[in-house]
Design a protein around this nucleic acid. Structure first.
Lengths: 232, 232
DNA sequence: CGGCCTGTTGATGCGACTCAATTCAGGTGG
DNA sequence: CCACCTGAATTGAGTCGCATCAACAGGCCG
């Protein structure tokens, strides 16, 4: 069984370049934990006893307000880790994790992992790089939320998604939204009604076309400008 | 000279618990760099060749939009590091750093520091903890910006500042704003006019009193509720 | 079929940004 | 020492973006 896990771990970015020995040690302390759709994986504010790697499924990391609104900090896909930040400085999870679909994870208990971290400089380096990228990502989100309006945030989302999938941005490239529009709205810091209206406006402008969660880019140049904050 | 630096470094959180040997190595690669008020220390998007420790003065890390608005991600005080995230995964600084007053810093070039990081598990651990706390901080800001209104963000700022200074929140405790209200507004994701109005409302409610940048807490309980998002 | 969830569209109201005018404080030079 | 200038802070009026409330259409499933 441990060999199975080591094979999986080898393909996770966080563990790239590790020695076989380190991978084996990681595999020994990893535990399979599966969650059905809508299950809460951990609550914001609860003690962080470990972190997760998502093997299959989808997970949202979110904050919610007393009056029921929610903001999605991050959408986690297979191969990505989550809950990492909590195991280091803070002793509590900074957000709530919810399975958006049936999800399989590997769980790493905090204590043994920290020990391994001390003995493997490469693992520590990878961990720092991972957190660095998270920081960068959050920084961008803060910039968007504070300085840009919904249309700009949506435009940026589409562009980044497109680069992620196709490696470039060009007319007639198609992006699949793998999440509901309600979730996308929360991720963009707005609500579904506003997202719906904004999409309609972009469609009316001929910047994109869309049906059933498939967005086709029509005018990349204008889309870039909108993402930059140009009023429409 | 190197002894001087080692003495300074010893008191920096990031370097706590390091061996004398590591401190000496750090001291050897650190460079003094001073900046006058309003100097740009680094630009967002420029290559990150190293990071800084602020010894004296004050620095803002900010994002700015094409139309001149700015958002302050973080206010850096003496003893804190900045630009750390950039030296690891990203090769560019994610924000612009500006000296708000004459500032003295120590500068650590990326390459040698990374080498040291690999050889000192304790340093790597501290670095991870530091970044972890930054992540936590940014997460809170995102929550505030997306879910709360200005009054709640201001209330939370006052409460956190109070805890930071006095270790508790109680009536008649005084908080010194060491920054201009315009800067505070940018930090709270708003503009000076709105901040001014919000302060006036809080004063009218008897929650706080304020003159010349000195805020006195009058009603801690109500302040907590406002921070939680209760409408006023 | 009827329930439910997701998404769309319309009407309305509120919070916060904009623009503009005024006051105030600090610093400078005559 | 006071007049002057400059940038910060305040206050008012108007506008705009977006959330809210509400009604409704379409797809899915028990």
């Amino acid at each position: 069984m441990a060999e199975d896990k080591a094979g999986i771990l080898r393909r996770i970015y966080l563990f790239s370049g590790l020695t076989e020995e380190d991978l084996a040690a990681l595999a020994r302390l990893a535990l399979h934990r599966d969650f059905p759709k809508d299950a809460i994986i951990f609550w914001e504010g609860r003690e962080a006893a470990g972190f997760f790697i998502l093997l299959a499924g989808q997970v949202k990391l979110m904050k919610s307000s007393p009056d029921g609104k929610e903001y999605i900090l991050r959408l986690v896909g297979p191969g990505e880790t989550f809950g990492e930040a909590a195991v280091l400085a803070e002793d509590v999870y900074p957000a709530t994790a919810v399975a958006l679909s049936d999800s399989r994870t590997l769980y790493f208990p905090k204590g043994p992992f920290l020990a391994l971290l001390t003995s493997s400089p490469r693992l520590a380096r990878n961990m720092l790089a991972t957190m660095s990228r998270l920081l960068y990502h959050l920084t961008r989100q803060l910039e968007d939320l504070s300085l840009k309006e919904v249309s700009a945030r949506l435009a940026r989302f589409i562009l980044e998604k497109c680069r992620e999938i196709h490696g470039e941005v060009a007319p007639d490239l198609v992006i699949e939204l793998n999440i509901s529009k309600t979730h996308l709205a929360s991720y963009l810091g707005t609500i579904s009604e506003t997202l719906s209206r904004t999409l309609t406006r972009l469609k009316a402008l001929g910047v994109i076309s869309e049906e059933k969660g498939r967005i086709t880019i029509k005018d990349p140049h204008l889309l870039e400008n909108i993402a930059r904050g140009v009023k429409i």
